[in-house]
């Protein structure tokens, strides 16, 4: 465990908590893509099945349980408790265009052709593109609440920190996971445009709105 990995995990946790608190405090999930949140719940579910087969550490197990629980809580708030505030009309990204190719790819390119390994690979590939419905929604409405941009910032920062962690681990531990690294690079690239807007607008106190 190095500092980049730890801050990456904490950044991921911060993102998840920010989103939950935003929805809970405002009693509204306006501007949030339920589809992205469903995809993240699917990502955590398929990735953390090893909770049943192996024990890494107390830290590892607790974080996995927290991520899974929070992602299901978020989905519950969006599709059940605060369903009336869910902006389904603008959440129109076709998720099958992500899930089907990603499913196919995870069968073709994986470390080992076993059920859990394929599901883990599927979750890695899916996570890299799971934010697209949310970004699509923002591009459609042309704006995002500031708290939503903080959520996206921490969510993007997490994988960027993991990239540094992988460079670190490659040099100091000889650890290298090509599938995770390539997917992590793709994932981080998808956030670059948003990072630019976050730094140039949100951090200067302006609302994130896109030119018409």
């Amino acid at each position: 465990m190095n500092i980049f990995r730890l801050t990456g995990d904490l950044s991921h946790l911060a993102a998840i908590i920010i989103l939950l608190l935003k929805i809970w405090k405002t009693r509204s999930c306006a501007g949030i893509s339920g589809k992205s949140q469903l995809l993240f719940a699917l990502v955590f579910t398929t990735r953390y099945l090893d909770l049943f087969t192996s024990f890494i550490s107390l830290y590892n197990t607790s974080m996995k349980l927290i991520y899974v629980a929070c992602s299901y809580a978020t989905v519950y708030l969006i599709y059940m408790k605060f369903k009336a505030t869910y902006d389904g009309n603008h959440d129109t990204f076709r998720v099958e265009f992500l899930v089907v190719p990603v499913g196919g790819l995870s069968f073709l390119v994986n470390h080992d052709f076993s059920p859990l390994e394929i599901l883990w690979t599927f979750s890695i590939y899916l996570e890299s593109v799971a934010i697209l419905p949310q970004l699509f929604m923002i591009s459609k409405t042309g704006e995002a609440e500031t708290i939503t941009t903080h959520y996206l910032f921490f969510l993007g920062l997490y994988r960027a920190l993991y990239l540094i962690n992988w460079i670190w681990r490659y040099y100091f531990e000889g650890f290298f996971d090509l599938i995770a690294v390539v997917a992590g690079v793709v994932q981080t690239i998808l956030y670059c445009d948003f990072f630019y807007l976050y730094v140039t607008k949100v951090l200067k106190g302006k609302k994130l709105s896109l030119p018409a």
Binding site: R5, D9, S54, H111, S114
Partner: peptide, 10 residues
């Protein structure tokens, strides 16, 4: 085998 290689990352 119904298991995956050990993954220590989240």
């Amino acid at each position: 085998a119904f298991e995956m290689m050990e993954k220590d990352e989240l």
